[in-house]
Design a protein around this nucleic acid. Sequence first.
DNA 1: TTGACATGATACCTTTTGGTGATATATATC
DNA 2: GATATATATCACCAAAAGGTATCATGTCAA
Lengths: 106, 106
Amino acid sequence: MNEQGAFRALADPTRRQILMHLSAADMTIGEVSDRFEMTRGAIKKHLTILEEGNLISVQTSGRERINHLEPLGIKSAANWLNYFNQFWDDKLGALQSAIEKETKND
Amino acid sequence: MNEQGAFRALADPTRRQILMHLSAADMTIGEVSDRFEMTRGAIKKHLTILEEGNLISVQTSGRERINHLEPLGIKSAANWLNYFNQFWDDKLGALQSAIEKETKND
DNA sequence: TTGACATGATACCTTTTGGTGATATATATC
DNA sequence: GATATATATCACCAAAAGGTATCATGTCAA
């Protein structure tokens, strides 16, 4: 629950692109902003919103802030969406129930 | 692809609640707005945005408009999120690859 | 300690968003 | 036809979002 922060963060295309970049490697704010034609300030705001949605987490190292992907928010959004699978695809729903069972036994 | 409309629509909590209501039953605009303390006009706007994101589709019947859940948009958002599973949960990723294979053989 | 570098923070601007209220149109129903 | 019902549309408003520019702070390196 509390998927609001995650869905709010996911609504912006720039933020989704940031997540894609962070899936390739952890990055500092500067490294992220190098990949966009936008000021550091704007990127910093996006990173803050991603952090609030628990889609990324941040580790400070000296004067750098290293951003990396965080499962929590992404999973909460994905779980919310997966609720709807049951309404049009029973087979998929059954398999995903199996996954949940499986992952609990880790 | 083109998941922007879906994610934009999902960002608002009222719209996510509407989807939950529509998962129980198809509803006219009036029936949806009866479930919220908000004007019909506001609900109509939300339904338009949900339709633009392909999260619902609408069938006209006389003077009524019947809204019902639509897999397309929800699946496109879910698929986008599922891409990230591979980065922290190999077992889950493997099982979901199996699902994709399975559902293609339908 | 001085200077360069990475980030933090703030004020400001424009556009979008989420909502209201009023009015118009189309369709049932009597 | 007259009237009630369901929705459509439009103007309007306040607040939030997305961006810039500027200045402050903390840290590394010589």
